[in-house]
Amino acid sequence: MYSSGTFFFFLFSSALLFALINRVLRYQLTYLFAFSVLTAAAWGYLFQDDFIVPVAVFFSFYIIVTLKDRGWLKTWQAVSLTLLPLLLVKLHLNNHWGMIGLSFMTFRAIDVLLYRTKKDGQNFLHYFCYLFMPFIILAGPMYRWRTWINDINKPVFRITREQFLLAMEQIFTGIIQKFLLAMLIDNLIIQSWAHRPFTLSVGIVMSLAYSAYLYFDFAGYSNMAIGAGRLFGLTIPANFNMPFLAKNPQDFWRRFHISLSEWLRDVVFMPIYMNLMKLNFFRQNKTLAQNIGIFCTLFCMGAWNGLERHYVISGALFGAISVAHNMLQWSAKRSPVLNVWLHYPTIAFLGRILTLASAAASLYIFSGMSPL
């Protein structure tokens, strides 16, 4: 429902409707008013069968951030309490807290805890719209609090022709990716191969097919969300940048699910690395501190979806592959022969193939359709 063509059709239509009304009213509508109405309407559409859970989750998050702002909770305590509902759901200890978009809503609530300043104020509607914005409520992109505040504080709600054309181009790109290419891959390959007994050929076909499906499905959703945001003048960040052109694992995560990768870098890698660097042992072994931070960050990339075996294994593979690449770079800096060898065109090309093959295998495990 929330990622269907119908949902996005109403989302796009609402942007155009607001633009028309605003033009009639001589641009008197503010961003906050427009988003408050849109978010309230989306809330009614998405949670029409059960209002209790989203209301309870939202007010628990709002109380936590208020207590933190008043100094009654430390940041780590507020973050831990905010993560608690998501952890309980992922551990299957309290499925009653499960709801559409809980993961990314939790991440946005944490972003507020970490990055909201006194200058931003404590506007209730700012917080409500940021957590439940319909463009990104399900699966991102990870729209940061600082960007939201800059967007929402624009003086007038207005769509220029350039914004409209750029937004529609991105929306149509997303429609083709999600509702044509992803559906074709799913219908023609995945559904027919998924039930076959596992062999090497099945593993190769499924790895390639599922990786392509995930890319087109998720990139399509992201492009439609970004396009819808642009119709409202929002700068929702890009989420994919042709990951099939990645040179190495590090480059792959700069191109694949970019917004979440960058957010995890800021809230997982940097705190771990900076705290380890306070210890004498790690100041003398910086690469080890980097590897611990890299592994934890990419492990979270897989494991935050749940602690089922396929998520844990895929997250561990994401981390192990990136750590292995980091160690190869570390060795190349200390060995001129290895450094020259790695820059040979043939070796560089094989590195690209190995990067994509390892990513495809990891994502196939992530899908839950592999025997692992």
Score class of each variant (00 low, 15 high):
residue 1 M to C: 02
residue 3 S to P: 00
residue 7 F to V: 06
residue 9 F to W: 10
residue 15 A to V: 02
residue 16 L to G: 09
residue 26 R to A: 05
residue 26 R to Y: 03
residue 28 Q to R: 15
residue 29 L to E: 06
residue 29 L to I: 09
residue 30 T to V: 05
residue 33 F to N: 03
residue 35 F to P: 00
residue 37 V to R: 07
residue 37 V to W: 07
residue 39 T to M: 07
residue 41 A to C: 12
residue 41 A to S: 14
residue 44 G to K: 14
residue 44 G to V: 03
residue 48 Q to T: 13
residue 54 P to N: 13
residue 62 Y to G: 00
residue 62 Y to M: 05
residue 63 I to M: 11
residue 66 T to N: 01
residue 66 T to Y: 10
residue 69 D to I: 00
residue 71 G to T: 07
residue 78 A to H: 08
residue 78 A to L: 09
residue 83 L to K: 05
residue 83 L to F: 12
residue 87 L to T: 04
residue 88 L to F: 11
residue 88 L to H: 08
residue 90 K to R: 15
residue 97 W to C: 11
residue 103 S to F: 10
residue 105 M to P: 00
residue 106 T to P: 03
residue 107 F to H: 02
residue 107 F to C: 06
residue 107 F to R: 02
residue 113 L to K: 04
residue 113 L to R: 01
residue 119 K to G: 06
residue 123 N to A: 07
residue 127 Y to I: 05
residue 127 Y to W: 06
residue 128 F to A: 09
residue 128 F to H: 03
residue 128 F to S: 03
residue 133 M to E: 09
residue 143 Y to M: 09
residue 144 R to D: 05
residue 145 W to R: 11
residue 146 R to I: 04
residue 149 I to A: 02
residue 149 I to M: 14
residue 150 N to H: 14
residue 151 D to P: 04
residue 153 N to R: 13
residue 154 K to Q: 11
residue 154 K to S: 07
residue 155 P to Q: 15
residue 157 F to L: 13
residue 157 F to Q: 08
residue 158 R to V: 04
residue 158 R to F: 03
residue 161 R to M: 00
residue 162 E to G: 01
residue 163 Q to P: 00
residue 166 L to E: 13
residue 168 M to K: 03
residue 170 Q to R: 15
residue 171 I to E: 06
residue 177 Q to F: 14
residue 178 K to P: 01
residue 180 L to R: 01
residue 180 L to F: 07
residue 188 L to A: 15
residue 188 L to E: 14
residue 190 I to W: 05
residue 193 W to E: 08
residue 194 A to N: 07
residue 195 H to S: 15
residue 204 I to G: 06
residue 205 V to K: 03
residue 206 M to T: 00
residue 209 A to T: 02
residue 212 A to I: 07
residue 213 Y to H: 11
residue 216 F to A: 13
residue 220 G to L: 05
residue 229 G to D: 03
residue 230 R to I: 01
residue 231 L to C: 03
residue 233 G to M: 06
residue 244 F to D: 07
residue 244 F to M: 11
residue 247 K to V: 11
residue 254 R to F: 08
residue 255 R to K: 14
residue 257 H to G: 08
residue 257 H to Y: 11
residue 258 I to V: 14
residue 261 S to K: 02
residue 262 E to N: 07
residue 263 W to P: 01
residue 272 I to Y: 13
residue 276 L to F: 09
residue 277 M to A: 09
residue 279 L to M: 09
residue 281 F to C: 11
residue 281 F to D: 12
residue 283 R to C: 12
residue 284 Q to H: 12
residue 285 N to E: 04
residue 286 K to G: 02
residue 292 I to S: 10
residue 293 G to P: 02
residue 296 C to G: 13
residue 297 T to G: 12
residue 303 A to T: 01
residue 304 W to H: 14
residue 304 W to A: 06
residue 305 N to G: 11
residue 306 G to L: 01
residue 308 E to M: 09
residue 310 H to F: 13
residue 312 V to A: 06
residue 312 V to H: 09
residue 315 G to V: 06
residue 317 L to T: 02
residue 319 G to S: 04
residue 324 A to N: 00
residue 332 A to S: 15
residue 335 S to E: 02
residue 338 L to Y: 09
residue 344 Y to L: 12
residue 345 P to S: 08
residue 347 I to C: 10
residue 348 A to S: 15
residue 350 L to P: 01
residue 351 G to I: 04
residue 354 L to N: 08
residue 355 T to G: 07
residue 355 T to A: 10
residue 369 M to I: 02
residue 370 S to Q: 09
